[in-house]
Amino acid sequence: MEIQIQTFTVHKRFALTISRGTTAQTTNVWIRIEQDGVEGWGEASPFSMGEKPQTTAAIARSLQAIAPLLKSLHPLERQRIEHLLGQAKLPSAARAALDVALHDWLGKYAGLPLWQLWGLERDRIVSTSVTIGISTPEAAKQRVLDWLGKGTAESPRRDIQALKVKLGSPEGIAADQAMFTAVQETAPNIAQISVDANGGWTVESTLKMAHWLAERGVTYIEQPLPKGRETELTKLFYLSPLPIFVDESCFTSRDIPMLSDRVHGINIKLMKSGGLSEALRMIHVAKAYDLKIMFGCYSDSTLLNTALAHLSSLADHLDLDSHLNLLNDPFIGASFENGRVVPNDQSGLGVRLR
């Protein structure tokens, strides 16, 4: 199979601030594989969790290095391809780009959308949350209004059903509480609100915030403690009035068994897992442990969020909003309908250039 690799830069309509920093733009990697007149598309977006960052340059280099080794293989030789990728120790984001492209190729080759190839039902897809980054109460209020189509920003009106509020402010939980209050007061009709601290809290501050947030109807708390402090999650599991989900603490299906007795759910992202194949494994393992499942994203374009949308009927919560905040997304794919990201009927991913 022939492989083409190129980069593209996307700019956020609103910069996103979390406990670890602020992102206004990213340069992602677009990969295309071609075989038998069929072309499959994949994407990788850079990310960092405090360890060795998966940068755009590192992702692109790894894909360029593996491309000649894949040339003699057919996209249907998935076992051989997976073995080769394992030996090469590609970054998870690079593996994800290839895996998504192979799935897109397969769907197009079969003439079926992925959700149908997997036997899934689109009407089971739940609403996706849209994200409010860490900011002042006044800025958070304006961001909510912009999402709801009532602000001054040039963005289309959207039927938002759920919000995710980023907390874990360096200024402490008083700042978190003030910002959350502003968000909730601005969107009183949105009942589904979750909170993501991105590892910005301690056990003590998490328990204090969990009780405070529970009184305000929050659905769950995501990644309250920093990655590496998973043993402390046990106390939260038993004492928190709200369910605890993990993101940075869970990359692949191998991480799930050790977390199963101390969390209520996991956040699956394509860049962490290494693609749709591993995401599906994670879903099955998580369900075997009776854990809830959510899907998330980084600075992913429509291509990647459409890819996960094909599996979304298997998730309990969704946070696939990154493409909705892009000014120059090069792709068109899943539609946004009544707060839901819904894949179309076209074969493969159903993604095309804008």
Score class of each variant (00 low, 15 high):
154 E>P: 00
102 L>Q: 03
238 Y>I: 09
20 R>A: 11
114 L>P: 01
351 V>F: 04
6 Q>M: 05
93 A>S: 15
309 A>F: 04
126 V>T: 14
318 L>Y: 04
30 W>M: 03
209 M>A: 15
188 P>R: 13
141 K>V: 03
294 M>P: 01
94 A>V: 07
247 D>L: 06
213 L>E: 02
213 L>T: 02
322 S>M: 04
49 M>W: 10
72 S>E: 14
74 H>W: 09
155 S>I: 14
70 L>M: 15
30 W>H: 15
139 A>S: 12
274 G>E: 03
97 A>W: 00
14 F>R: 13
247 D>M: 10
203 V>G: 07
257 P>C: 12
200 G>V: 06
147 W>G: 05
16 L>F: 14
124 R>H: 13
185 E>C: 07
132 I>Q: 03
199 G>N: 06
160 I>W: 04
240 S>C: 12
291 L>A: 08
159 D>L: 12
80 R>W: 10
14 F>S: 07
260 S>Q: 06
103 H>A: 05
333 G>Y: 02
32 R>M: 10
63 L>N: 03
166 K>G: 02
206 T>I: 08
257 P>Y: 08
109 Y>A: 14
305 N>P: 01
151 G>A: 11
210 A>W: 09
95 R>K: 15
108 K>R: 15
299 S>Q: 10
98 L>K: 05
310 H>E: 05
38 V>R: 05
329 D>C: 00
155 S>A: 13
296 G>K: 05
67 A>M: 08
30 W>V: 00
70 L>P: 06
341 V>D: 00
3 I>Y: 02
95 R>L: 10
25 Q>N: 11
300 D>F: 00
55 T>L: 03
198 N>M: 09
149 G>L: 09
307 A>W: 02
33 I>Y: 04
164 K>R: 11
336 F>T: 03
319 D>Y: 04
27 T>D: 06
349 L>F: 10
327 L>D: 12
298 Y>H: 13
66 I>G: 02
175 A>E: 11
235 K>S: 12
318 L>Q: 01
178 A>L: 10
18 I>R: 00
271 M>F: 00
346 Q>K: 14
